[in-house]
């Protein structure tokens, strides 16, 4: 640590480097598990979600549900057919909502507008809403991500 020592600088330097080096390696080794612990990676997705019974969805219903831990909109058209969309805006991930007055899906954050087919028809959204798959099994409505 001092420069005025005439003898043995190589050994002293070596020890200094050894201490500094091993301390640095140690710090990295300690930081690695901490970093891994903090970011635990991806858990298996919950998968398809039962969102309700057919009887709860008369034609013309739009309902917000949770699928895969994320919000989604289930739309039952007047002809009885089902469609479901991820309720996450393709612009900046706000949650979109159904507007019954204008019969369209709107994002309140930056005035994004989607048609009831999920198409981006106004505002900043760059893509249509992601479409989800709807299965009706013995009166139970199941929504799952496509693919």
């Amino acid at each position: 640590m001092s420069n005025d020592e005439p003898k043995g600088p190589p050994r002293r330097d070596f020890l200094g480097i050894a201490v500094g080096g091993s301390a640095a390696v140690f710090a990295v080794a300690a930081a690695y598990p901490v970093a891994r612990f903090i970011e635990p990676g991806t858990r298996p997705r919950p998968g398809p979600a039962v969102v309700g019974k057919l009887i709860e969805f008369p034609p013309g219903t739009v309902r917000s549900v949770m699928v895969d831990d994320r919000p989604a909109l289930v739309v039952r058209a007047q002809d009885g057919s089902f469609r479901a969309f991820s309720a996450i805006c393709t612009h900046l991930q706000c949650v979109v909502g159904y507007s019954p007055e204008r019969n369209q899906i709107e994002c309140p954050c930056h005035r994004g507008v989607y048609s009831m087919d999920g198409l981006n028809i106004g505002g900043p959204p760059p893509r249509p809403l992601e479409e989800l798959q709807v299965t009706v099994n013995e009166g139970t409505i199941i929504v799952s991500a496509v693919g």
Binding site: R12, G16, A18, V19, A23, A29, P33
Partner: peptide, 23 residues
């Protein structure tokens, strides 16, 4: 394997600190 490596590194640190202290 990571645990063994970490213990090894700790031992190296221990030794170099001890030597430094002796010095």
């Amino acid at each position: 394997h990571g645990y063994y490596a970490a213990l090894g590194i700790s031992c190296v640190l221990f030794l170099s600190l001890a030597l430094k202290s002796f010095q």
